[in-house]
């Protein structure tokens, strides 16, 4: 009877272990490959690069020119098929958003590896604009919005608001004096 119970427990553990995912998507992406997602070559892989994929997708779909620099367009065409399905579309933007979230700390919305006043300012600007009734109609998303949407929830309460900006500032201040 004991052996039977032991067998069931052992079987369950082994079976579950085989079902557990062993690697995240980010872990599958080498640093060298990740660096290729800096489409605008500004040294940072952040919301601007997500936005560029969205813009390129719109270009492909409509045939209109949206991205002004040809070198950026070529860079995207060469490297932005992140999910390897041979098309550049919003899925690749979503994948890059995932990668950015995994590779950067919450609060570092511009992904420069430093959480400082610039991040707080971006979060606050984003929140203020979202709070404005007609913000979305005035002009459409900008790159930093994607970064804030991905990494701006500093207090991890599910909402990006002034409290996140405040918490980032407090953290920056305490780190600065310590």
């Amino acid at each position: 009877m004991k052996i039977k119970k032991f067998s069931i427990i052992l079987a369950a553990i082994i079976s579950l272990a085989t079902l557990m995912p062993t690697n995240s998507f980010a872990a599958e992406i080498s640093d060298e490959l990740y660096q290729k997602y800096d489409f605008n070559s500004d040294g940072l892989i952040n919301g601007d690069d997500i936005f560029l994929i969205i813009q390129r997708y719109s270009e492909i779909a409509t045939g209109n020119t949206i991205i002004s620099e040809q070198s950026i367009r070529e860079n995207i065409d060469k490297n932005a098929d992140i999910d390897s399905d041979n098309v550049i579309n919003a899925n690749d933007a979503a994948k890059l958003s995932d990668l950015i979230k995994e590779k950067n700390s919450m609060g570092d919305v511009n992904c420069d590896k430093i959480i400082d006043t610039r991040d707080a300012s971006s979060v606050l600007t984003y929140y203020t604009r979202l709070s404005t009734e007609d913000y979305k109609e005035k002009e459409l998303s900008i790159g930093i919005d994607y970064g804030v949407a991905a990494l701006g929830d500093y207090d991890k309460n599910g909402i990006i608001d002034a409290r996140d900006a405040s918490a980032i500032l407090v953290n920056y201040a305490s780190n600065s004096v310590s």
Partner: peptide, 23 residues
């Protein structure tokens, strides 16, 4: 909530892409 999005003109038509960073 559309999340983040971008809209482009295509002649008389419109093309809108939206993306939520929420998994």
């Amino acid at each position: 909530n559309l999340g983040q999005y971008s809209i482009a003109e295509n002649g008389t038509g419109r093309f809108l892409v939206f993306l939520n960073t929420d998994d």
